[in-house]
């Protein structure tokens, strides 16, 4: 359904928006199958109401919040971001949400909390949950990353509520990182003092680092990350150069001052 929005705090990127049909039919959401067409075919089984999100761990306001309360907690903004998959394709997607920082401020993390962990839904009655993975899917950010104004608690795209295959009813979008860092269908947010174990990093730490910032200078073992196929309205995507931090270096590069980005890839 349609979502009422206010103009975003960030100007939308100038590149043409990816057609909605492509953005909602080409997804990595392994809970529904490993092929990129699987999520659209299988995610219809997921119930996105009722839905609650548990806020827990090192915070002063642990709480279980209802999705509809969360949706109304702050005004929803339009944010059109570049979306870069670790597989070297990218899209331009108009997301709808408000800064993740708002939710974190509400949770009021304790001083010793350094990381935020996101847990996605894992329910065999609604999902395929292929073998070989330690479900549920988990992702994580450093608190200062999560507090960055670009990090978006996302409820919709293209002015409408998220399709199930996009990670409905609520996900995060961290536009300067590879797509898998942006956890989908979140049921739990936990504050920790240690770097949390995250699904892909745990599966293959030489391929998927905890940070996974978009970095054209750091190749994936199986392909170069210097370029990406931009999925837009044309039949064949054009290959374009990948930008450091996915083009958001001005906003986020300072988070990593003094860090060796080839070591902390």
């Amino acid at each position: 359904s349609k979502l009422a929005t206010v103009p975003g705090t960030f100007p939308p990127v100038s590149d043409p928006v990816t057609p909605q049909g492509k953005a909602t039919s080409y997804n990595n959401f392994y809970e529904f199958g490993t092929d990129k067409a699987d999520p659209k075919a299988n995610a219809g089984k997921m119930h996105v109401r009722p839905w609650t999100i548990k806020i827990e761990g090192l915070c002063n306001n642990p709480k279980t919040v209802d999705i509809d309360a969360l949706l109304k907690f702050k005004p929803l903004e339009d944010r059109t971001y570049r979306f870069r998959c670790v597989e070297a394709w990218s899209m331009i997607v108009p997301w709808v949400g408000y800064p993740l920082a708002e939710l974190i401020k509400f949770a009021d993390p304790k001083p010793q909390a350094k990381f935020v962990e996101f847990t996605s839904l894992a329910d065999r009655s609604q999902m395929e949950l292929p073998g070989g993975f330690d479900w549920p899917y988990k992702e994580g950010l450093r608190i200062d990353e999560a507090m960055n104004p670009l990090a978006l608690l996302t409820f919709g795209s293209y002015g409408q509520t998220l399709e199930n295959q996009q990670g409905a009813p609520v996900r995060v979008i961290v536009p300067w990182k590879y797509g898998f860092k942006s956890a989908k269908s979140i049921v739990k947010i936990r504050f920790t003092d240690k770097q949390p174990t995250t699904t892909w990093n745990d599966m293959a730490s030489n391929e998927y680092g905890f940070y996974s910032n978009v970095n054209p200078g750091h190749s994936h073992p199986r392909w170069s990350q210097a370029h990406e196929r931009r999925i837009d309205a044309s039949v064949f995507p054009k290959t374009i150069a990948t930008l450091p931090f996915n083009g958001y270096a001005n906003e986020v590069a300072s988070l990593y001052n003094g860090m060796d980005l080839n070591r902390y890839f």
């Binding site: 990816t18 039919s25 080409y26 990129k36 394709w89 196929r229 999925i231 039949v235 064949f236 995507p237």
Partner: peptide, 13 residues
């Protein structure tokens, strides 16, 4: 598939 524009979002893939 090519003629009917049915090669998916990423035809290269």
């Amino acid at each position: 598939q090519f003629q009917t524009n049915n090669l998916g979002a990423d035809p290269v893939n």
